[in-house]
Simulated assay, not measured.
Amino acid sequence: MTARISDAHDLAGDPAALLAASPVAAELRAELERRWPAGTDHIGEVSRYALLAPGKMLRPVMLVAAAEAVGGDRAAVLPAAVAIEYLHVASLVHDDIIDGDELRRGRASVPVRFGVPDAIVTGDALILSLFAALTECGLPAEPVLAAVRAVADAGVDLCRGQALEAELLRDPACPPERYRRMAALKTGALFRAACRSGAVLGGGDTEQVAAATRFADRVGTAFQMHDDLLPYLAETEVTGKSGSSDAGNMRPTFPVIVAHGMAGARDRALLAEALSGHRSPVESFALLREVLTRLGAVERAAAEAAEEIRRAHRDLAVLPGGDGARLLAAVADLAIHRDR
Rank of each mutant, 00 (worst) to 15 (best):
A83H: 07
P23I: 07
L87F: 14
Y86F: 15
W36K: 01
I336R: 03
P281N: 05
Q224C: 01
L168Y: 06
P60F: 12
R289L: 13
R149C: 07
H337Y: 03
L51F: 04
L134A: 08
E283T: 06
T40Y: 10
A199W: 14
V110C: 00
V156W: 13
E237G: 15
R326I: 09
L288H: 07
T187G: 03
D124A: 14
M62K: 00
K186I: 10
R196G: 07
H94K: 03
A132Q: 09
A75G: 15
E165Q: 12
A50I: 10
G324W: 01
A210R: 15
T253P: 05
A83V: 06
H226G: 03
E68I: 02
A25L: 05
E235T: 13
A17L: 15
A150M: 05
P140M: 02
A330Y: 11
A83N: 05
D96H: 03
L169S: 10
A210M: 12
G161T: 05
R218L: 15
E33M: 07
P23F: 09
A329K: 05
T221A: 10
R218F: 06
R178S: 15
C159F: 10
A66H: 04
L32A: 05
G13Q: 12
G277T: 02
H226I: 02
G123I: 10
G44C: 08
A269W: 07
A301E: 01
K241R: 15
A193H: 00
E136T: 11
E290W: 08
V200P: 04
A297G: 04
G155L: 06
G138E: 13
L271W: 04
R214G: 07
A189V: 12
D118Q: 13
R181A: 13
L158S: 05
G188C: 06
V331L: 15
E273Q: 12
R310H: 13
A38E: 15
L295D: 06
H278I: 00
L51C: 08
M62D: 00
T187N: 01
V318E: 15
L158R: 00
F254W: 15
A154W: 09
A25G: 10
F254M: 02
D339L: 09
I127P: 03
R181G: 12
F254V: 01
A263R: 02
A312V: 01
V110I: 07
Y49K: 00
L185G: 09
R113A: 11
R340N: 13
T239E: 04
V46I: 07
Q162V: 08
R338M: 10
L169N: 06
E102R: 15
L275N: 02
T239S: 11
E142N: 03
A26W: 07
T187C: 03
A194H: 08
E165F: 10
F254K: 04
A3W: 10
F191H: 08
E85Y: 11
T2A: 12
A132I: 04
D99R: 04
G106P: 09
L78T: 00
L128Q: 09
L168F: 12
A65E: 01
A286M: 06
R314D: 14
G264W: 08
T253D: 02
L52D: 13
V93P: 08
